[in-house]
Every structure is written in C-alpha cells, then in structure tokens.
Design a protein around this nucleic acid. Structure first.
Lengths: 374, 374
DNA sequence: GCACCTTGTGGTAGCGCTACCATGATGAGG
DNA sequence: CCTCATCATGGTAGCGCTACCACAAGGTGC
C-alpha cells in the first residue's frame, strides 16, 4: 500500500528492553498447568471440554484457571488450531454508503470470530470467473455477495463449481442453491405504499429501480399490491423507470412531475432516486412534504443528509452481512459432502423509518383531486 | 489486475511436505519468500512497510504476493507480535459520510494489524472526562479523534493526563502536544479558489463551515488569500456562515443567491453545504454549472452521488485514519518515558477532484459583470 | 589503512496453543 | 500370567509470523 505522501518517520532508535515478548502479563496455559500440577495438554483438554480427563484433574485445572484469571489467547488458538476460515467479500460497484455499512458488519463479525475477511473488487464478469477459482485455490472457502453481484447467476455458478460457499446478501429472491440473507422486499414496499396511502394520498407515483436487479421487480410488485388492495388505479404514466442512480432518478422524477395532474406522492425504489426526486420537486418550487410526499428505500446515509430527511425503509445491512459471515462459518464446519450445498435462507426484519419527507396531501391537491373525480 | 499468469504454486513446490496439519493450505510468508527468491524476513518487512528494503526487492515481493494471492495470517501476526493493542475511536457527531469513511480506514488498518478498535460515541464534553479515564483503566492505550473532537483542547488534555496517546485527525492546526494527521486546509482552499478564478469567475461566494472547528477558519483564509492575490474584492455579502450541515447550506446558499448581482460561483466549505447550494440553485432555475459554478470540500460520498457531481477537494480520509492507527501503534511500542508525548505530525496530500459542477461564467453573467464594472 | 557508521538481507528463536503420537496405567479376555 | 484394547496423561513439533541479532557490502572520516 503505497500512498503518495511523505511522512517523517525519523524515529528508529529506541532500544527498549523487550518487555512485550515475554515480560509480565497474561497467564498462559503453562502457568495454569504448573498451578494445577499437570501438563499444558491436560489444561488444553479441559478448556476444550474433551472427554478423557478424570473428574478430579478437571476440577484442579478449573480451579487453577479461576485462580489465575486465565483467558486463552485467541490468536494462538486459531494459529495452532490450523484451519483458519477465510471468506471473501466480492463487490462490483454498489453505492458507496451501502458498501461501507456492508463492510462494517462483515468486518466486525469476522473479527469477533477470528475469521479472515478478504475484500475483493470484482469489476467485470469475465474476470470474475478466473478470480473466483484463484481465490478458492488460495484457500478462500466462502463468498459474500452484495448487490448487484448477488443477482448474477454466473458468479453463483462459478463459486459452486469451484467448491466455494456462496451467500447472497439482499437478493430479491432466493434460489435454493446457495445461502441468502435478505429482507422481504415485496412486503417492505407494500408497507411503505400502505403508509403513503394511509396519509391520504391517492395519486402516487413510483420509480422503479435497475431492472437487472431482482429486488427492483419485487419492490414494484409490493407497490402494486398495496395500491390494488386500496382500490387505487395505477396509471402507467405514474410509473417511471430508473436505474438506482441519482441521475436516473432526476429523469424519472421530471417525467412524473410533468404529468397532469401531478402525483401528490412519489415512492422511489431507493434513496438516491428519492433524493433526486426531492431536488426536482424543489426545482419546480414544490415544497416537500407539503406539496408532495417523497419516500425512499434503503436508508442509506444520503437519506438523512439531505433536507428534508427522507422517510424510507431501513434494511439492517450490518446485521445482514454479519449473518452472512455466520452462515458461511456454519456451512463450512458441517461441510459433509451431503449438506454441502444446502443453501440456508434467512429473512431479516426491516423497518419503516419516518422522517420529514412525507405528509398528507395538501388542500390544494386534495381539492384538485376532488374536482377531478367529478 | 494482471491475469493470464497461471498459478504455478503447486508445480513449484514439489515436495508438499506440509499438508499434515492443514488440508487447504493458504499461502504463507514462506511461499511468498520462495517465489520472490528472498527470505521470509524480507517479505515481512515489505508487508509491514519498513524502510530498509531495496526498491527492486520490494517490487519482486509485491509481485509474488499478488501472484499467490497471499494474505498475512492475522493470528500468527498478533501472536508473534506480542500484546494486543486497544484503541478507541471517539466521535461526537461529524457528518455521517465523513464518519463512515473514517471508520473504514480505522477498521481496516486495525484489522490488518490485529488491533482491537473500540468505537465510542462521546456526546457531551463533561461526560468525556470520566469516559476517557475509564477507557484508559480498561486497557485502551490510544485515542483517535475526528472533527470536531480533535479541536477540543480539554479532551486532548484529559487523554494526556490519563496517560493515553491521542491522535487528532483533520484538525485545522496542529499543536505539538499530541499526534495529528491532517491536510493543509489553507492550501487546499487556496488551490480550489485559484481553480475557480482560473475558470474566469470574479464574483465568487463562500460558505463558511462550523465556526467552532479550526478547519473552517483555515479554509476561509485560503479563500481570502487566493482572492486577494488575484486582486478580486471580497464582498461581505458574498460570504455566508454555515454549520457544515446540509440545512445550514440551504440557508446560506439562499442568502448568497439573493444578492444582486448574484455570484457566478460559490465555494462551500464542505460537500453537504455544496450539495445544498446546488439544490437551491436548481430551485431558482439556475443550471449548474452553466449558470453557476458550485464547489465543495471533502469529497464525501454525497459529492458523487448527486447530479451534477461536485468538483471538490478530496481528503484521503481513509488513509488518514489508517495513519492515525499506525501512529498510535508505533507510539505505544516505543513508549519510553522520554518519547512518550512527542506528538508526531503528519500532513497528507489532498487532491482537487474536478467533476461536473464547475465551468466558466456564462456569457450573460460575464456581460453583466462587464457592464457592472463601468 | 582502520575504525566507524549505514543499508539490505538472512538466521534463529520463540509467541501460546493444539494435533499427533507415545507413554504409563488400568481392566478385560484368553 | 500375559496379551490387547482402553483409558488418562505427557512430550514434541509445529501453526505463521515477527523481534532481535548477525553479517556482509558499501560508504565516510581521519
């Protein structure tokens, strides 16, 4: 890692007398063994709950452990224990804030379990093929795949072919062939739509996400279902295609706001597009939320850094990623030829976060809507 | 990334004498050494960025590392390296995107060095006093302080009094009593202003950051210096006070845009406020950058997620935080009574990132300006 | 010319723990 | 009584890496 910087590292002298290497501190297994009048091996057995230790010996050891306040050294344990789990986190180019949340969860859990996490960018699909088998050869046993990679069947297949364990995080739909951690996208979009309807809106616009990601379709379906259930008509003109990017959101919002009469609320499939919608509304001198309600999805950082802050759906990204790490660890441990490719599915709870971008329809709009009906 | 090199690992090591303990062998430092035709020690040096390695050797080793996809074993590292360091990252409430970048850098470096990183929110200053000594008693040896905490002398003093090592990241000015990692805020703001002037602008607005942070003042000074050097007058009406928040940016931008004649460019002291300025400009039906240039500072994720993407100053936040971790680790290791409170200062390189929010002044504005001069 | 650095490199000895034998003790079966 | 499985335990050899020298090669300075 060479960064273009100059640093003043003049200090190199300092001849301290090496106290860290041996010195004081931290009782070791040998200390315990001495105190319990047995060998380190026996202590190790007790710690690891092995069977073949006499009850009396075990008690002695336990006693010594308590007396010395001994805590086994994690690092040494996993070093000696051999097989350290290595997991790769592949990513294409998700939104940066999504990725950082994602990393936090994975890194934290990996550190807790003393698992090696390798973070790998994986730009192009053709390249990925070679990359994956290289990683597997290099000792990587599992792969965590955030969107949009989690929807790429060829990557999934490649991992399986190489003998790796794949866990997709946040795919729209789970296929049984691999593990997945997700939220119920359909239900979340449904809930949000219900929320908007509950505010009194009837003319609600929707911006679809990137059509290549399964989640986009599911969110749209959730929206549709709630609208239909409420007996509201869904005009094609009030549904715009986006790509999950801010820019695509601007284009889509522009289109929706130009419809006559305009929607009193817009539900965008992610926060970037919702933020763009707010910007477009402002450009038209519409107040958010008084003139128009705008809701997003994902609760990325953007949602709370713009004004008004967005009402959105919070995915527990960190927890989801942590869960993915756990799942790989588990799958690896019980990797009998049989259960190998089972593919556990976990659905986690999302949350509708209400902030300042939603409100009931304005009187003017209501009036307009009322008159329009007649 | 270089592909096309097949992995020659297995053919190279014919004997395969290991394999006893581990089934799936991850490449070790010895494998790399063999591939790079040097000793494991040299590889270790390269990995740890030590100085005394010839450039050619370093390159060879780096090459071998890449080829083998080698990843150092953290467990072994911390075992051999001695005690495990514990560092706290205290934060008040910086912008979320800043924080997430910040965390990434720290987490990554901490994980790389097997340092235990404790992330601690520290809302109120009175509370902080107790918190710090509690953490030190609990075995925390170092503290990383992002803005705005890095400007709080009482926190710094408290850490020193408790015997902890403090490193401020991104303070405006370094005091010798503690470590600091920063960029040259003044120079960066100066450069950006020069850039804007170079585009042909003369009537340039500025939005100041939170006055409690030293960096705000430095950025303002950099702006002033460049303006004066170019012989441009600085109207008080074209300088607005902000707080580094999106919302404060909206208020400030509104004020600046209402000035008659309005500025043809606005330089905001951070990206959040710049983004807000773009939004306000749009609300007034001003095109960015054709009608007005808007520049930010920090290059947080927001800068590239809105449209147009912001021209801004990129601080290597991640690298800076990583550097802070390194500095604490080093300071701790050579913590002789003498060198203890030395307080190393590191200044890192920033970069002016040009994107799509700047352009020369429009003809209309130029004309206006020209006529105004007469 | 010989002390002295300085610089790049290699060798060795562990860090604390566990895998894998090897060893004494036991008891059961012949 | 002697074999042979079955315990309970000990010894040894690393796991992968880094701290600490040692050492050779190339300067300086006088």
């Amino acid at each position: 890692m060479a960064i273009g910087m100059d640093i003043t590292q003049k200090s190199g002298t300092a001849t301290r007398k090496r106290s860290s290497r041996k010195g004081n501190s931290a009782p070791t297994i040998a200390d315990v063994a001495r105190a319990a009048h047995c060998s380190p091996m026996t202590v190790s057995r007790v710690i690891n709950g092995e069977e073949n230790v006499r009850e009396a010996t075990r008690a002695q050891v336990l006693d010594a452990i308590a007396k010395l306040n001994y805590i086994p050294n994690r690092a040494a344990r996993s070093l000696a224990g051999g097989a350290q789990l290595r997991i790769a986190l592949l990513f294409d180019n998700p939104s940066a804030s999504y990725l950082s949340e994602f990393l936090m969860g994975a890194l934290e859990e990996a550190s807790r379990r003393d698992i090696h996490l390798v973070v790998q960018s994986c730009e192009t699909v053709p390249e990925s093929k070679e990359l994956i088998s290289k990683l597997v050869d290099g000792g990587i046993v599992g792969f965590i795949l955030p969107p949009p990679l989690c929807d790429d069947q060829s990557v999934l297949d490649q991992i399986r072919a190489s003998g790796g364990i794949a866990v997709a995080v946040g795919p729209g739909r789970a296929s049984g062939s691999h593990g997945a951690v997700q939220i119920d996208e359909f239900q979340a979009a449904y809930d949000m739509t219900r929320h908007i309807i509950g505010l009194g809106h009837e003319r609600i616009g929707f911006i679809i996400g990137n059509p290549e990601q399964v989640a986009s379709g599911q969110r749209l379906e959730g929206f549709r279902a709630a609208m239909e259930e409420a007996g509201l008509t869904i005009s094609d003109r009030l549904i715009a295609q986006g790509q999950f990017t801010y820019r695509s959101g601007m284009v889509a919002a522009e289109k929706l706001l130009a419809v006559d009469p305009p929607p009193t609320a817009i539900f965008a499939s992610n926060d970037d597009m919702a933020a763009a919608t707010v910007a477009m509304a402002h450009r038209r001198h519409l107040d958010v939320p008084n003139d128009i309600t705008v809701c997003g999805f994902d609760d990325t950082e953007l949602a709370s850094s713009i004004w008004p802050e967005l009402t959105t759906i919070r995915q527990p990204i960190r927890e989801m990623t942590a869960q993915a790490v756990v799942m790989i660890a588990k799958a690896y441990r019980q990797k009998t030829p049989a259960s190998k490719a089972k593919g556990e599915q976990v659905t986690m709870a999302y949350k509708l976060v209400r902030r300042n971008s939603d409100a009931g329809p304005s009187l003017a709009s209501s009036f307009q809507r009322a008159s329009e009906k007649q």
